[in-house]
């Protein structure tokens, strides 16, 4: 009897697994983010052909979230076309997309298609249309706030569209609290101090990325990451360089009177 139960249970597990979104996806099952320790912790990278969510942790972290989301999308797209669907409202709230800046980040503006929609419903529709097109490398959705149309159903619909075509969908949420959805992974991203260059110049893009949820059961963890444009890959942000605000003028002095050494 016990054996029969186990067989039934195993069959049920298999059926449930087959029902999971992304089960019928084509091509490689996952893509690497580029940092070996991060990929290992995620079990070989992030899944392709599913929905990943990136939340900006604070109102001021919109650019960091967009940068991290774009990095993930670029890794997933692997040189293929990128579709970026966004709301009109975002131009005022979080700034418009800037071609030269995208190029400086490592995204080829010529391979990028931008769809502007008036409302979140339009954004989701455009993204679903893009997610159905297998020639697209990745679709990026950027949505401000917590619109009613963005519920469990709509994210499930996106996941299904992505699963059928193998297009990875990255949803960047700005000004919103993490909410339940059909996303495979959910990240909370904040800006992090960069490793300074000569003369205390700001360095490469740096993020503090917290994995809030992962479908495969990877526990919550936080990484400090840097984006390496030349290799189009995430790197570990060097922690050895101490981060402190240094006045632009003379030498900074710590509380105990000992002078700080300038990093860089």
């Amino acid at each position: 009897m016990l054996a029969a139960h186990e067989i039934a249970l195993a069959r049920l597990r298999k059926d449930v697994a087959a029902l999971e979104p992304g089960a019928c996806r084509r091509g490689g099952a996952s893509f690497r983010l580029g940092l070996p320790t991060l990929d290992a912790a995620l079990g070989g990278g992030l899944a392709r052909g599913v929905l990943h969510e990136v939340y900006a942790r604070g109102q001021q972290d919109v650019a960091a979230a967009a940068g991290f989301g774009l990095g993930v999308a670029l890794r997933a797209a692997d040189g293929r076309a990128l579709v970026w669907a966004r709301q009109d409202l975002l131009d005022i709230e979080a700034g418009a997309l800037y071609g030269d800046g995208l190029a400086a980040f490592g995204a080829d503006p010529k391979r990028l298609l931008v769809v502007r929609a008036r409302d979140p419903t339009g954004v989701l529709r455009a993204a679903a249309e893009a997610a159905r097109c297998a020639a697209v490398g990745a679709a990026v959705i950027e949505i401000w706030g917590e619109p009613k149309t963005l519920d469990l159903n709509s994210s499930r619909r996106l996941t299904l569209a992505a699963g059928a075509s193998g297009v990875t969908v990255v949803m960047i949420r700005l000004g919103a609290k993490p909410a339940p959805s059909a996303a495979t992974s959910r990240w909370g991203v904040a800006a992090a101090a960069s490793a300074p260059l000569e003369a205390n110049a700001p360095g490469r893009p740096a993020f503090e990325a917290a994995l809030l949820r992962h479908r495969a059961g990877v526990g919550p963890r936080t990484w400090r990451l840097e984006w390496d444009r030349d290799r189009a890959s995430f790197e570990s942000a060097p922690l050895s360089r101490f981060v402190v605000s240094v006045p632009a003028g003379g030498p900074a002095v710590a509380d105990d009177g000992a002078p700080w050494r300038r990093a860089g």
Partner: peptide, 22 residues
């Protein structure tokens, strides 16, 4: 027919912002 912007120097951080306000 548009041309791509000139490539950035390797090793440089991005010198142009991802977002612009207009």
């Amino acid at each position: 027919t548009s041309a791509s912007p000139p490539p950035e120097e390797p090793g440089e951080p991005p010198l142009r912002p991802l977002r612009m306000f207009d």
